[in-house]
Measured scan of single mutants.
Amino acid sequence: AMEMGLACVVCRQMMVASGNQLVECQECHNLYHRDCHKPQVTDKEANDPRLVWYCARCT
């Protein structure tokens, strides 16, 4: 999947907007926009540098 680069696995886009940054699952290393992931990634989750985030598939 490395050839995908830094794109969201849901929408396949790399564009990021304020409040909709890409977050990386620490287990599978897929990237998700906060708005694309279900459930939506919260501000607290996205902005906490100590948080280890896992996508819905890996939790």
Rank of each mutant, 00 (worst) to 15 (best):
A1C: 07
A1L: 09
A1T: 15
A1V: 14
A1D: 15
A1H: 15
A1N: 15
M2F: 09
M2N: 07
M2D: 05
M2H: 06
M2K: 11
E3M: 04
E3A: 07
E3H: 05
E3G: 05
E3L: 03
M4L: 11
M4W: 02
M4T: 14
M4E: 09
M4V: 12
M4H: 14
M4P: 11
M4D: 09
M4N: 13
G5A: 12
G5F: 03
G5R: 09
G5E: 14
L6T: 14
L6M: 15
L6E: 07
L6F: 08
L6C: 09
L6Y: 09
L6P: 10
L6N: 15
A7M: 09
A7T: 13
A7W: 02
A7Q: 08
A7E: 09
A7K: 15
C8I: 00
C8T: 01
C8Q: 01
C8M: 00
C8D: 01
V9M: 04
V9Y: 06
V9N: 04
V9Q: 14
V9I: 07
V9G: 04
V9C: 14
V10H: 05
V10A: 09
V10M: 06
V10F: 04
V10D: 04
V10P: 01
V10W: 02
V10Q: 05
V10K: 04
C11T: 00
C11S: 00
C11N: 01
C11H: 01
C11Y: 00
R12P: 02
R12W: 02
R12C: 09
R12A: 08
R12K: 14
R12S: 14
Q13D: 08
Q13I: 06
Q13W: 01
Q13T: 08
Q13E: 08
Q13N: 11
Q13V: 07
Q13G: 05
M14K: 15
M14D: 15
M14C: 12
M14N: 13
M14W: 05
M14A: 14
M14P: 12
M15W: 05
M15N: 14
V16Y: 06
V16P: 12
V16L: 11
V16T: 14
V16I: 08
V16G: 14
V16F: 11
V16N: 13
A17C: 10
A17G: 07
A17L: 05
A17P: 12
A17D: 04
S18A: 13
S18L: 07
S18E: 12
S18C: 06
S18K: 12
G19C: 08
G19V: 08
G19Y: 05
G19L: 10
G19K: 14
G19F: 02
G19W: 03
G19E: 14
G19N: 11
N20G: 09
N20K: 13
N20I: 08
N20D: 12
N20L: 04
N20W: 03
N20R: 10
N20C: 07
N20Y: 05
N20A: 10
Q21C: 11
Q21I: 08
Q21L: 09
Q21A: 11
Q21S: 13
Q21N: 09
Q21R: 12
Q21M: 15
L22D: 03
L22E: 02
L22H: 12
L22N: 10
L22Y: 14
L22S: 11
L22W: 07
V23Q: 07
V23S: 04
V23L: 12
V23N: 04
E24K: 04
E24Y: 02
E24D: 07
E24W: 02
E24H: 04
C25G: 01
C25Y: 00
C25F: 00
C25T: 01
C25E: 01
C25V: 01
C25D: 01
Q26V: 09
Q26R: 11
Q26P: 11
Q26I: 06
Q26W: 07
Q26C: 10
E27F: 06
E27T: 10
E27L: 07
E27I: 06
E27D: 10
C28F: 01
C28K: 01
C28P: 01
C28W: 00
H29P: 02
H29T: 04
H29V: 02
H29K: 15
N30G: 13
N30M: 11
N30S: 09
N30F: 05
N30Y: 08
N30K: 14
N30T: 07
N30C: 13
N30Q: 13
N30H: 10
L31Q: 15
L31E: 02
L31Y: 14
L31N: 13
L31K: 15
L31T: 14
L31G: 10
L31F: 15
L31P: 05
L31R: 15
Y32S: 03
Y32G: 03
Y32F: 12
Y32P: 02
Y32Q: 03
Y32I: 05
Y32W: 14
Y32M: 06
H33L: 00
H33I: 00
H33A: 02
H33R: 01
H33W: 00
H33Q: 01
H33G: 01
R34T: 12
R34M: 12
R34D: 03
R34Y: 14
R34N: 13
D35K: 08
D35L: 14
D35G: 12
D35S: 10
D35E: 15
D35W: 08
D35H: 15
C36A: 01
C36L: 01
C36F: 01
C36G: 02
C36Q: 01
C36H: 02
H37R: 03
H37I: 11
H37P: 01
H37G: 06
H37S: 08
K38S: 13
K38R: 11
K38Q: 11
K38T: 12
K38I: 13
K38Y: 06
P39G: 03
P39D: 03
P39N: 06
P39M: 04
P39Y: 03
P39W: 02
Q40L: 10
Q40I: 13
Q40M: 07
Q40K: 10
Q40R: 10
Q40S: 11
V41F: 05
V41K: 03
V41T: 05
V41M: 07
V41E: 03
V41N: 02
T42K: 11
T42Q: 09
T42P: 14
T42V: 06
T42Y: 05
D43K: 05
D43W: 05
D43T: 08
D43A: 09
D43S: 08
D43M: 09
K44F: 06
K44L: 07
K44G: 13
K44I: 13
K44Y: 02
K44A: 12
E45R: 04
E45M: 05
E45Q: 11
E45K: 15
E45W: 04
E45C: 07
E45P: 04
A46V: 12
A46S: 08
A46N: 08
A46F: 15
A46H: 05
A46D: 08
A46Q: 08
A46W: 09
A46I: 08
N47Q: 08
N47S: 13
N47H: 12
D48R: 06
D48V: 09
D48Q: 12
D48G: 08
P49S: 12
P49F: 03
P49M: 09
P49R: 11
R50N: 15
R50T: 14
R50W: 04
R50E: 13
R50K: 13
R50Q: 09
L51S: 14
L51M: 09
L51W: 07
L51H: 14
L51A: 14
L51Y: 05
V52S: 12
V52R: 10
V52N: 11
V52I: 07
V52Y: 03
V52M: 10
V52F: 06
V52G: 13
W53A: 07
W53G: 03
W53I: 03
W53T: 06
W53M: 03
W53H: 03
W53R: 06
W53Y: 03
Y54S: 14
Y54L: 13
Y54A: 07
Y54M: 10
C55D: 02
C55S: 00
C55F: 00
C55W: 00
C55Q: 00
A56H: 10
A56L: 06
A56M: 11
A56K: 05
A56E: 08
A56W: 06
A56D: 03
A56C: 11
A56S: 09
A56V: 06
R57N: 09
R57G: 14
R57A: 11
R57L: 06
R57C: 08
R57D: 12
R57Q: 10
R57H: 10
R57T: 14
C58P: 01
C58V: 00
C58L: 01
C58M: 00
C58N: 00
C58R: 00
C58H: 03
C58I: 00
T59K: 10
T59E: 15
T59C: 04
T59F: 03
